[in-house]
């Protein structure tokens, strides 16, 4: 029912979100008002629910990172940077997110090499990078929009401060260990990010983590178990290969 009298420039907003609800809960929601139903994530306003959908996927991403680092032994730049990238991918779609991320970091590295000639203090160097990253992302979004890529706008979801730090770390890595190490660690981070993304976008996991948030405790148990693992990493079977020819 909409009733307006003498109003001008009035606006009407409708927010909608597709939501899945466990059958039992659906039955209960109709007639009960107990503490448990009040505490459910589904009772939150819709904007917060969509945020929670992402938030509850984070443990899955974190578990992927722990697995790749502890069991496989992959090097990533910045421990949980891959999870944040994966989170951004969820909003941009994989290909668009991947290309824009690589473009932004590459452009940032080029600008950073100019900054290193200015001999700035570290804090102001990072701050400068943040400003530049904001400009770059705006530019990419506008250009993308004008070219008709609707995904351009969603690049803004990238965690900018993390990107600025990534650029700074990569450029130091470049100066000290050469471009090959940059490609290796950057590639490792992206590989973990893509894997985390592939897990986090699977409908089954989205469904389970949102509707049964307590399942994240199972992930927590896995993470704790991996934290106690003292066996060899897969990468060490290669690293110690010289032991075979004694």
């Amino acid at each position: 029912m909409l009733d307006v009298s003498g109003g001008s420039k009035s606006r009407v907003h409708f927010s909608m979100i597709r939501q899945t609800v466990p059958a039992v809960q659906l039955a209960q929601v109709k007639d009960s008002d107990s503490l448990f139903t009040r505490l459910g994530v589904q009772r939150l306003p819709i904007e917060e629910q969509s945020m929670f959908k992402l938030l509850l996927l984070l443990p899955l991403g974190a578990a992927v990172v722990v697995f790749m680092r502890v069991i496989i032994g992959l090097k990533t730049s910045g421990t949980f940077m891959p999870v944040l990238i994966a989170l951004a991918f969820l909003q941009t779609s994989l290909v668009a997110g991947l290309t824009s991320f690589v473009l932004i970091v590459a452009a940032g590295l080029a600008l950073r090499s100019y900054l290193s000639r200015l001999t700035l203090l570290l804090v102001s160097r990072i701050a400068t990078l943040i400003v530049l990253v904001v400009f770059m992302i705006s530019a990419f979004s506008i250009i993308g929009y004008q070219l008709g890529f609707s995904t351009g706008m969603t690049i803004t979801f990238f965690p900018m401060i993390i990107i600025a730090w990534t650029i700074e770390r990569m450029s130091i890595l470049w100066e000290e260990d050469g471009p090959s190490e940059v490609v290796r660690q950057g590639g490792g981070s992206l590989l973990v990010a893509v894997l985390a993304y592939l897990m986090m976008q699977m409908p089954i996991f989205v469904h389970l983590t949102f509707n049964f948030p307590e399942l994240n405790l199972v992930l927590l148990a896995c993470i704790l178990a991996m934290g106690q693992y003292t066996g060899y990493k897969l990468s060490e079977l290669r690293r110690f290969r010289a032991m075979d020819d004694l």
Partner: peptide, 17 residues
């Protein structure tokens, strides 16, 4: 290219974890 876990255990190699 690789060395087996069994062989590393024989040597008593200490891993990172």
């Amino acid at each position: 290219a690789w060395v087996s876990v069994r062989r590393l255990k024989e040597f008593g190699m200490l891993g990172m974890n």
